[in-house]
Design a protein around this nucleic acid. Structure first.
Lengths: 250, 250
DNA sequence: GCGGCAGTTCCAACATATGCAACGGAGGGG
DNA sequence: CCCCTCCGTTGCATATGTTGGAACTGCCGC
């Protein structure tokens, strides 16, 4: 592994929290300031860092590249217009998560009309056991893939509705698989809940999920459930655009 | 400048276009495959690269960090809810560009309801002479800052309505400053036009601009102009949130 | 005007990144 | 079925690129 590159990436990680002075950077890396300077200057020349009143932060080139990368993900371009329509309809936040290799990642987000924004972020890995999209995907995954996931899962408790027992989680997945949709009843954040439905590709395999999320105070779970027909319709439309015909072909 | 980091960044740039095989990367950098491998592996461990069927692409850690960075930009959190409301209202694409040091960058985008998406991208620098937001900002900038900008400007022609003459561009800016809003009449892409209005901070200085963009076929410029009152209202609301009171204090 | 602090420049020392050579595995053609 | 090729991977000696020291500058506060 390249020490120099490792350090450069570490610097970017530092920027992720807040802008940093050269001194801070050098201290954190445990290197001489001159070394830190050279690294930062290289990042800057590449557009990955930019100076902002005496400190450095993430550069715009990096932002643009990342944005581009998201839009290249297979699900994104197909699903996006559908998500916008759905978000538009109810004014709630809409998330799209995609199954990528062995993780589930948010790949699109349409913010609701409320003043508050959800903390989720495109590019962020989804916590499978406390999110609607995570559960929707896991529940509809084929056996071996699901087992591989479950084997890796830990069950941290985020709120008091979080499911922290593996057996209970399996039971929940079974329920979800049966009825075709998942919900999150304040399991990740006390004050938000959501309903989620899976998306399938041409072969009938689950490749992602869409959720409608809202503050419990604004729209309790019972109210969100009323949007399930619309949500299911959206997911069916996305799946159809992906070539799904309603059947499971392996 | 650090050669190693330069190479790592170059690799990320390669990923921006499309996934790359190790061989391609090595060839492009002009280094041995083993060298390329080590760099890519370092990127991968940091979440900046990820393997995808025999090739490598941008990793999600990088996407998440970039997303976070955008949301830290001062204008973004304040303006975002206003933009969502505005986008919601007409179903057209809404852009927010911010003046950052000596460049103008897209910092938010709310996609319209249509199936097509604009090519613009958050994090991307704005082309000042052929975009509504660029012109709106430039026109309302204070003299010295504007001159600094103009001095650096080249005037590439993108379409046949593009303004390519410096004098003509100055005249256009004067007109815009007078009436308080700018428009783009297919100057960057033939088939899209937009109207844009500046946003001011607590000191009355222009810090960004919001635009409503649409396909000409869908909503010609005359129609977009009808949305100016609403757009102006949105910008005033954002400006007020930033502490603007309607006066210019230096 | 002086002391201290943060960033910058230059350079010699050496740790580190580099390319070579050799290996392994997958795929295609004979 | 075997061989040959292509691509990614590993180990290692070499020298190149990175590193940190020391010395310089500019800025701020006292």
């Amino acid at each position: 592994m390249s020490q120099t590159v490792e350090r450069a990436l570490r610097i970017i990680e530092l920027f992720a929290e807040r802008p940093r002075s050269l001194g801070e950077i050098a201290d954190d890396l445990g290197v001489h300031k001159s070394t830190a300077l050279r690294l930062v200057q290289t990042l800057e020349r590449g557009g990955f860092a930019r100076p902002v009143d005496g400190r450095y932060t993430i550069g715009f080139r990096m932002v643009a590249i990342a944005q581009h990368a998201v839009e290249q993900l297979d699900l994104h371009p197909v699903a996006h217009p559908h998500l916008v329509r759905l978000g538009d309809r109810y004014g709630h936040t809409v998330h799209l998560a995609q199954l990528v290799d062995d993780e589930i990642v948010y790949v699109a987000k349409v913010d609701g009309r409320g003043a508050l924004r959800m903390r989720s972020r495109v590019g962020q890995p989804v916590d499978p056991h406390t999110s609607g999209v995570g559960k929707a995907i896991l529940a509809h995954l084929d056996e071996p893939a699901r087992e591989r996931f479950l084997a890796r899962l830990t069950y941290p408790r985020h709120t008091d509705t979080s499911i922290t027992d593996p057996a209970e989680f399996r039971a929940e997945l079974a329920r979800i698989a049966e009825r075709g949709w998942a919900e999150d009843d304040g399991e990740f954040e006390d004050f938000v809940s959501c309903v989620a439905v899976p998306v399938r590709d041409a072969r009938g395999r689950v490749v992602g999920a869409v959720s409608i999320t809202a503050l419990r105070a604004l729209a309790p779970l019972e109210r969100l459930r009323e949007h399930l027909p619309e949500l299911t319709g959206t997911c069916a439309a996305i799946s159809r655009d992906l070539g799904w015909t309603g059947e499971h072909r392996s």
